[in-house]
């Protein structure tokens, strides 16, 4: 099909505002789940991730989609946001990740430059559920003392994350999505102690 068959937000203004607030709160309070507006997502996108895409993407953003994401999700994003797609993860403003097992290493994305650290890639990571067996303890701004996470993100991811946070202010910000929930991982969230995964 040339065009998608699915509408976007039911109430474009308020749903986008609600989702934007959820995404902001998620980054301001790392590790605390937030709820986005609801919508019917295309095949291959979680409802919360689809809502975040409609909220964040526009004609001027460049998006990298993990190759496993379906063509119907691609045409839906193109129809509703008009974003540009890229195959080069280094040039992407946003990256949508569907399968964390085969995602590129974190250093393959754009970490920004010393003058413009905000020009980095933001990761939109879709997880089957926000609860999982990979544990990590985070500390940093927005976290009172420390917070323990139990997510499907495993040790290799947290090792790369730890290496990335040492380059602060360069780095990536990430959101994890499952169903209608979103969890924020800003670049300021550091690993507090040893983490056990697997």
């Amino acid at each position: 099909m040339l065009t998608t068959q699915l509408p976007g937000f039911k109430d474009p203004v308020h749903d986008a505002q609600k989702t934007f607030r959820a995404l902001l709160d998620a980054l301001a309070r790392p590790g605390i789940q937030q709820t986005t507006a609801s919508l019917t997502p295309p095949e291959g996108l979680k409802p919360s991730c689809a809502a975040a895409c409609l909220t964040l993407l526009d004609l001027e953003t460049t998006v990298w989609l993990q190759p496993s994401i379906s063509g119907s999700a691609r045409s839906w994003l193109l129809f509703h946001t008009g974003c540009r797609f890229t195959a080069d993860s280094q040039t992407a403003d946003f990256a949508v990740i569907d399968q964390i097992e085969i995602m590129p290493r974190l250093d393959e994305f754009n970490w920004g430059t010393a003058a413009y650290p905000e020009a980095s890639t933001s990761l939109l990571i879709q997880l089957p559920a926000l609860e999982g067996t990979g544990s990590a303890v985070l500390q940093g701004p927005g976290i009172l003392d420390t917070i323990a996470l139990q997510t499907p993100l495993r040790t290799p991811f947290w090792q790369q994350w730890q290496a990335m946070t040492e380059n602060y202010p360069l780095g990536l910000d990430a959101w994890c999505f499952a169903d209608r929930q979103v969890l924020g991982l800003p670049r300021t969230a550091q690993l507090a102690g040893r983490q056990e995964g697997q």
Partner: peptide
């Protein structure tokens, strides 16, 4: 009919 993209 329904709106796929409401008038903007």
């Amino acid at each position: 009919y329904r709106f796929l993209r409401s008038p903007e």
